Amino acid sequence: MGERENDELDRSDTTLVIVTGVSGGGRSTVARALENVGFYVVDNLPQALMLEMAELAYAAGSPARLTAMVLDVRSRAFSADLTGAVHALKERGFNPHVVFLDAADDVLIRRFESVRRSHPLQGDGRLADGIAAERKLLEEAREQADVIIDTSHLNVNQLRRRVEEMFGGEDARRLRVTVLSFGFKYGLPPDADFVLDARFLPNPFWVPELRDLTGRDEAVSGYVLGQHGAVPFVDTYSRLIVGTAPGFEREGKRYLTVAVGCTGGKHRSVAIAEELATRLRESRVSASAQHRDLGRE
């Protein structure tokens, strides 16, 4: 299995995903999702063993061609110098992808309180103290990330589905675009690479027969896309993303989040996000639409 097979492969053919992030951010869910799409997952790996684990995965050939390493700040061997560790992997010929899981402080506090657990770094202090200490420790890791997933408004199934869409399938090395609708009243998505504002369009909320529907309904979609400027808006951003996708792929970026916002995240942003994702797929860009705030109103 080893030598003959590896004569035909170089280290960049071994897909390495490094998962880290804040405690309570969803690392266990991501690990299970990666296993679902065929990854060999090593949980709670000390950072000092990353290069050794990568070499073992390469030597194993096909059985470990897809390998994920989940790093945990609670490991005694954890170091904030993730940049150096990733650089060492790249120098050896690997092409690692770093996924960072984040969530708002209030969400993390609720998650810890719901399971009646203390934060691993809070010591004798409060939950908020542990979260703050961990954020400081993880600053460099967050900056190093290829993709940041904010899990504040994602349930377990939504997070699992997002990870499976990112890493599943034969085209896992291609750029994958998530078109994410949201409501400005609930805050900007912190993991967005591009933010589009659909509030220049008339709001279907003020049309009585459309108020209780969503942007997924044909009546609302038709209304939104029929407004002056809506189709050129989608066309412009579709061309922008399609035109820059090859460059992102050349530079090793695999995941792009395009956030489309309106006031409440129910009508205009949802309709535009669905249409933009459709246009991107028609242009052979791997894209899916997700809706962060749908159902909150």
Rank of each mutant, 00 (worst) to 15 (best):
R76W: 03
A85R: 01
V86F: 12
L82P: 00
Y58W: 15
A77M: 02
G84W: 02
A88T: 11
R76C: 04
D72Y: 10
A68N: 05
A77G: 02
V70A: 11
A59F: 01
A64Q: 10
M69L: 15
R92D: 02
H87K: 14
R74D: 03
G61A: 14
V73N: 06
A80G: 13
A77R: 06
H87V: 05
T83E: 03
R74P: 00
G61R: 05
V70T: 12
D72T: 05
E91H: 12
L71P: 03
R92N: 09
A68Q: 03
A64M: 15
D81F: 07
S75Q: 14
T83N: 09
R92P: 00
S75I: 01
K90L: 01
G84Q: 06
A68R: 11
A85F: 04
V70D: 10
M69I: 12
A60R: 12
L71Q: 11
R65I: 08
D72A: 09
A88W: 05
L66Q: 08
G93Y: 12
A68C: 11
A60H: 08
L89T: 02
A59K: 03
A68M: 11
R65E: 13
D72E: 13
G61Y: 07
L66T: 01
S79G: 05
F94E: 01
L82C: 07
V73F: 01
E91T: 13
F78K: 12
R76E: 07
T67A: 13
A64K: 05
L82R: 01
A68E: 02
T67K: 02
S75Y: 00
S62W: 10
P63G: 06
S79E: 07
M69E: 01
S62L: 13
L71S: 08
S79N: 05
L71C: 10
A77V: 09
P63H: 04
L89N: 02
L66D: 10
L66K: 07
L71M: 14
D81P: 03
L66Y: 14
D81W: 07
L66N: 06
D81G: 07
A77N: 03
A80E: 14
Y58I: 03
A88C: 08
L82D: 09
L71H: 07
A59N: 07
H87E: 14
G84M: 10
K90P: 00
